[in-house]
Amino acid sequence: MWRVLKRSVVEGFRSIFSHGLMSFASVGTVTVSLTVLAFFLLLAANLSFVADVLEEQVEVVAYCHAEFDRRWESTLVEKVEDIPGVRDVEFISRETALDRLREQFGERADLLEAVEEDNPLRDSVEVTVMSAGDTEAVAEELGRIESVERVDYHRDVVDRIHAMTEALRTAGIVLVFLLAGVTFLLISNTVRLTIYARRKEIEIMRLVGATSGFISGPLLFEGTLLGLIGAALSGGAIAWGYADLFNVAQRSLPFVPLVGPRPLLDNLFQLLLGCGALIGFVSSWFSVRRYLRY
């Protein structure tokens, strides 16, 4: 077993160099296809991130009765937290609400003097939801709580955000799946060509009594290695390009939401290596099998 493994590695390396042009072509194909795939993965990740950012801004506010007893604050918050689809809950006292108002008025805060003696604002609970689609259900549940008098949210804005985030996510997933398919076909075809070019060699090995494992071991290792090299190259190119883009965007367009390079790029790099190795191995296995009849 050890011998077969060792031989596969040694012969695999040897053959990559002795079939230099073919190896170069395979690595090139893997690199280019995975780079395109990675580009769209990053695009999809950012689309989904934009969707998240948009959704985080969806807020439902539940206003309490005027007679709300502050002693029940924690009970209220717990009740709200128990509602499915709720991401975060914050209790806003009437005083805090007034402070906020004052901040918003800024220099014209003097206008508030009239109300400061008898604060007309209500205690309230500000709720953010997991997904824009949950907003309506959450609002309904909030309305059922005794101490809540009125529930407020911008229905039309929420509906639009919801539609948009769904579209963004779907587009990302469809793009990635399409490209993953194309990438697999491209790479496996190249690996198959590499092995097709060697069918004579494989035939001769069979004729002198080489077992299937003896023949396929080095070829499988070679295919996997070519996939890995291509993946590493494309991962490097993408990481370098994205980190640069991110820095430029941060400086000149700080309001555009972009996913930070870490840990995104680390995950992407691992994913690419995994894909490269897997595609290399699987497609070599399929094509080797065609020339080994037993």
Binding site: I204, L207, V208, G209, T211
Partner: peptide
């Protein structure tokens, strides 16, 4: 069995008209 074909071939010496040598 098919798996045993390699064993058969190692016990035979076969010479072909086109030599069948590995060029590399």
């Amino acid at each position: 069995p098919r798996r045993q074909i390699p064993r058969l071939r190692r016990n035979l010496g076969v010479v072909f008209q086109d030599f069948k040598l590995l060029p590399s």
